[in-house]
Design a protein around this nucleic acid. Structure first.
Lengths: 327, 327
DNA sequence: CTGTTAGCGCGTTCAA
DNA sequence: TTGAACGCGCTAACAG
C-alpha cells in the first residue's frame, strides 16, 4: 500500500535516504535514522519485495528443493521436518524462500534450470534427497552461479556444502547393537540411485567383515511394502534384520507379527511412527528439523564467500517410545 | 539471464509483442506468435517474475497460510496433505504461491497484515485450521481486497469461500456406527477455539438426543496425550469412546491397551497412522489433499469475480487398514 | 495486429 | 551525510 515515497514524505527526507536506513547503511545520521524509522512505524510501511528484488538485480531468495520421488501424497514426516526447519530458519533470518518440488521442475528443460532459478530470484538452493539419476539437479550443482546446501548426498565444492550424518558409522553402530555373534543377518537396503542407501550399506559390510557373520542383502528401495514381502519370504532363515530405514523396519515388524515370528530388528532414521508400532526396534535417531535449519545457515555462509564444506550432524542410537512421541 | 528484449531482438519484434504472446493475448497473428515462441524456445527464456508482478501492479500470488498452532515440529500429516494439494494445483495452473506460517506473521502487527500481504504480491489466501482467537486473520477476512479460501471454518462472503465436509453429519454418522442402545458414551471434544471442534460436537449431541444414551463430554483439545489421560481416568465407566480426532482415538486406544480394557472407539479424520495402530477404530475419512487442491480452484473462482460459496467435500465412514497405508 | 511510451517501487550510483 | 536521477524487466495504454 504505502510505498517508499510516502515514508520519505512523512519523514521529510528523500526516498533514497529511506532505502538506506532500511537496508541498514551506516552513512546515516542518528537523527534522520530515527525520523525515518518512526515514519515507517507510523505508516506501517512494508517494502515491496518484488520491486526490491528487481531493483537490486534479484538473487536473494533461497529455493527449497524437495524430491518427493514417489507418487501422489508421498511427502512424509522426514521431508516435513526438513522443510519446517528450513522455513523457520529463513524466517528467523528474514530470508525469502520458495519451495520447489521435483514436480514443478518437470516442465522445465535441464538447460533452462539456470534461467528458471534466476527468474525466480533464487541464488541459493537447499536440496533434500538428491538421487543419482536426477540429471537436471546434478548439472545445476556445477553452476557456480548458485549456492547449494545438499542434504545426504556427497557433494562438496566451492559453492556446495554437504549436510548429513556419518551414514556408514551410524549404520555400523546400530547394527552392532542388534547383531550377535553367530547370527544370520538379513540386510534390507535402500534405493538403487540413492546416495545414502549405498553409504549405509558400506556400514553393515564393514561390521560383517569385522564380525564375520552370514549376511544376505536384499534391496527393498526404502519401501515398507517391499520390506514386508521380503520379510515374509526370508525371515525364517535369519536371526536378525537390519534395515536401511525405519519404514522398512516397520514393514518387517508387521510381517513378523502376522507370522508370529520373532527376530531382532534395527531401523534407521528415528521417525515418530516407531513409537506407535514398536519400541523394540532400535534405530538411528536423526534430527531432521536441524538438517533443514542448518542448511539455511550453510547457504548464508556460502553467500558470504565461505567455501563449501561438510557438516556432520550428530545422531543417536535409540529406541523410540510411545510416551516420547505423543503430544 | 535472457530478458524480454533479447527475445524481441531474436524474433525481430518489439518487447511489447513478446509480452503479449507470452501472456496469451489473442490479438497476435499466428505468424509472429510462432516467431516469438521459437525465439523463446531457442534462448530458453523464462520471464522474470519479480519484474512481472511489479509491472502489473503485483497481486498475483496465492498465500498458503498454515496455522501450526502448537509448538515446535508439530506439523503433521494433515497439514502436509493440505499443502501438497494446494502446491500441486498451483503448479498445474501455473499460479505462484507462498507458504506463510503463523510463525512468520508473529512479527507483523495486525494493522499491517494488509500491507504485508500486498508487499508480497499476494491477492488470495488459503487459510487452514483457522482458530476463533486468531484475531489478525479474522480481521483480514473482512478486507475485500483479498480473496480467501478458508478450510474448516465457517466464513462465507463475497470474497470468502469455505471448504469443508459436513462436520456435524460426519460426527453423527461415525458415532452411529459404534454406539449401541444403552451404551454409556464418552465423547472427547476438540480445542476450545476451534470451529470444527464445536461443529463436530453438535453431531454427537444430535445423536444423543435421538438415541437418548448417557453422554459425558470431556474437552481434550485434539491432544493425544490428554486423551490418553482422560481414557485412563474414565474409561472404566464407559462402553464406547467417540473422539473428535484420530489422534485422540489413538491415545484412548493406547491407554486401553496398557490397561487391558476393551471399548469401542471412533476417531475422526482418517489419518494413515490409524492403519498402524488399530484398524478396529472406525473413523471419518477425509481427503485432505483434495481440500488443498480445491482451495486453489476456489481462489481462482473468486478472482474471476464469482462470489464466495460453501464447498462441501465428501467423506467416508471407514476403517483404515495397514495394507492400505503402506507404500 | 504491432510498436512506442511510460511507469511499477525500489536500490544504487554520483554529485552536492 | 543526503538527494536526484537512472534503470532493473516487464506490462498496459495508446498510437499507428
Amino acid at each position: 500500500m504505502k510505498n517508499i515515497k510516502d515514508v520519505a514524505r512523512e519523514a521529510g527526507v528523500s526516498a533514497g535516504t529511506v532505502s538506506k536506513v532500511i537496508k541498514g547503511y551506516s552513512s546515516i545520521s542518528e537523527a534522520t535514522r530515527e525520523k525515518v524509522l518512526s515514519a515507517v512505524d507510523r505508516l506501517g510501511y512494508i517494502p515491496n519485495s518484488a520491486a526490491s528484488t528487481l531493483s537490486s538485480k534479484g538473487t536473494k531468495k533461497i529455493g527449497i528443493y524437495l524430491n518427493i520421488n514417489d507418487k501422489f501424497q508421498q511427502i512424509d514426516e522426514i521431508n516435513m521436518l526438513y522443510v519446517m526447519g528450513a522455513l523457520d530458519r529463513c524466517r528467523e533470518l528474514g530470508v525469502e524462500n520458495l519451495i520447489i518440488s521435483d514436480e514443478s521442475l518437470r516442465s522445465v528443460r535441464y538447460e533452462d534450470y539456470r534461467s528458471y532459478f534466476s527468474s525466480l530470484s533464487i541464488d541459493g538452493i537447499i536440496v533434500f534427497g538428491l538421487n543419482k539419476n536426477d540429471e537436471g539437479m546434478l548439472k545445476m550443482l556445477q553452476d557456480k552461479r548458485f549456492k547449494f546446501a545438499v542434504i545426504d548426498a556427497c557433494f562438496i565444492d566451492d559453492n556446495i556444502s554437504h549436510i548429513t550424518v556419518d551414514q556408514q558409522q551410524a549404520q555400523y553402530d546400530v547394527a552392532r547393537q542388534v547383531v550377535e555373534p553367530g547370527d544370520r543377518v538379513l540386510y534390507l537396503a535402500g534405493k538403487e540411485n540413492s546416495f545414502i542407501a549405498d553409504w549405509r550399506q558400506t556400514g553393515i559390510e564393514r561390521l560383517q567383515k569385522e564380525m564375520g557373520f552370514d549376511l544376505k542383502i536384499v534391496r527393498c528401495d526404502f519401501s515398507e511394502a517391499k520390506a514386508f514381502v521380503a520379510a515374509e519370504e526370508f525371515v525364517d532363515e535369519y536371526d536378525c534384520v537390519v534395515c536401511a530405514s525405519d519404514l522398512m523396519a516397520i514393514g518387517v515388524r508387521q510381517a513378523c507379527k502376522r507370522m508370529g515370528k520373532r527376530v531382532r530388528i534395527a531401523g534407521f532414521d528415528g521417525i515418530r511412527l516407531l513409537g506407535y508400532v514398536s519400541s523394540s526396534i532400535i534405530t538411528v535417531k536423526q534430527d531432521f528439523y536441524q538438517f533443514g535449519y542448518r542448511a539455511v545457515d550453510e547457504i548464508m555462509a556460502l553467500r558470504e564467500g565461505n567455501p563449501g564444506r561438510e557438516v556432520l550432524l550428530p545422531y543417536e542410537i535409540a529406541h523410540i517410545h510411545y510416551r516420547s512421541v505423543i503430544k
